[in-house]
């Protein structure tokens, strides 16, 4: 029998493989395991010793952690903080509107499954790194809100909440994001996962409001591959999810124009997010999930470096 260590978790980064795995918690674990085994690095080794930030020395601090090089430059005592000692607040915001239930093929996950898998995996990873993790699930309204915490049972709370929600109504991004900006205290790293099928200006306005509150934003725009190419032929009656109407057409006749519309929407998001320094990434449900995790870690590392540089600059 193969031991757990011998299991190649990397295969679970493939959405098609993950789609066959039932249970969000197990799926998230597999994503993380697969991710790190792919990097030849385990989250259980060295995570606590990885330097992350500096803070001023206070009485009672272990003198071994004083950074003497900084003292030599600044004549002030700074304690080296390692990753497990960081206090990053991560808010995962998942779109659970009806449009997220769509999947074009049985081999693929629905957009919501993909989003919750990524959200759970990110939460797991963040909590493992001692970050505080919160969750907001919304459709027309915020259906579920878990305040950020790094408590031991936080991940289970998050996973349970992600698994419990089912999309019912349409998305109202602007209102949701405005409400979130009011609820979230301080500077928070917010990861918004959804198809964002709303007016692009409304989405961008909501993001702008969050940025105004000095939150860090990561937006992962999830698409089903069919939504990108409209690969159908023959007469088809498209019944819009989120009560968006019905349309009987031969999709071949609209494909070109449809793709243009999609690309225009994505371009508008990309441009708007770029202006606001919001990390926007597009995923389709066939994209391996390690891409999302890599994106998160890269953003987290960059943020920690910025904080460190800021401290160094003050010193």
């Amino acid at each position: 029998m193969m031991t757990e260590a011998e299991i190649d978790y990397r295969k679970y980064l493939d959405p098609k493989a993950l789609a066959r795995v039932r249970g969000l918690e197990l799926r998230a674990r597999m994503i993380v395991e697969g991710f790190f085994s792919g990097m030849h690095r385990s989250p259980h080794h060295g995570a606590s010793v990885e330097f992350a930030d500096h803070r001023a020395y206070v009485q009672g601090d272990d003198l071994r952690h004083i950074d003497w090089k900084v003292y030599g430059k600044t004549d002030k005592y700074y304690i080296k903080e390692y990753e497990q000692e960081t206090n990053l607040t991560l808010m995962v915001v998942v779109d659970a509107s009806e449009s997220m239930r769509y999947r074009s093929h049985n081999d693929l996950m629905s957009k919501y499954d993909y989003a919750t898998s990524v959200a759970a995996a990110i939460s797991y990873l963040a909590l493992k790194q001692q970050d505080s993790v919160g969750l907001a699930v919304f459709d027309e309204n915020i259906r579920s809100f878990i305040r950020p915490s790094n408590s031991g049972h936080q991940w289970r709370l998050v996973v349970r909440e992600l698994a419990a929600q089912t999309g019912r109504t349409k998305t109202s991004m602007k209102r949701i994001l405005d409400e979130l900006s009011e609820r979230l205290p301080g500077r928070t790293l917010i990861i918004i996962i959804g198809d964002l099928f709303d007016d692009a200006d409304a989405v961008l306005n909501g993001l702008r409001q969050l940025r105004y509150r000095r939150h860090e934003l990561i937006v992962w725009n999830i698409w089903d591959p069919a939504e990108l190419t409209l690969p159908f032929s023959g007469p088809m009656l498209f019944e819009g999810l989120e009560s968006s109407g019905r349309l009987l057409i031969d999709p071949r006749s609209l494909r070109e124009r449809y793709v243009e519309e999609v690309n225009a929407f994505r371009d508008q998001l990309k441009t708007g997010c770029g202006k606001m320094q919001v990390d926007l990434a597009f995923f389709d449900t066939a994209t391996p999930l390690d891409v999302a995790l890599s994106g998160y870690l890269a953003t987290r590392s960059a943020r920690l470096r910025q904080r460190s540089a800021r401290i160094m600059g003050k010193g």
Partner: peptide, 11 residues
């Protein structure tokens, strides 16, 4: 063929 469709706004 009836198809449920999410990206209706683009269609």
């Amino acid at each position: 063929v009836k198809v449920p469709w999410a990206a209706m706004r683009f269609l």
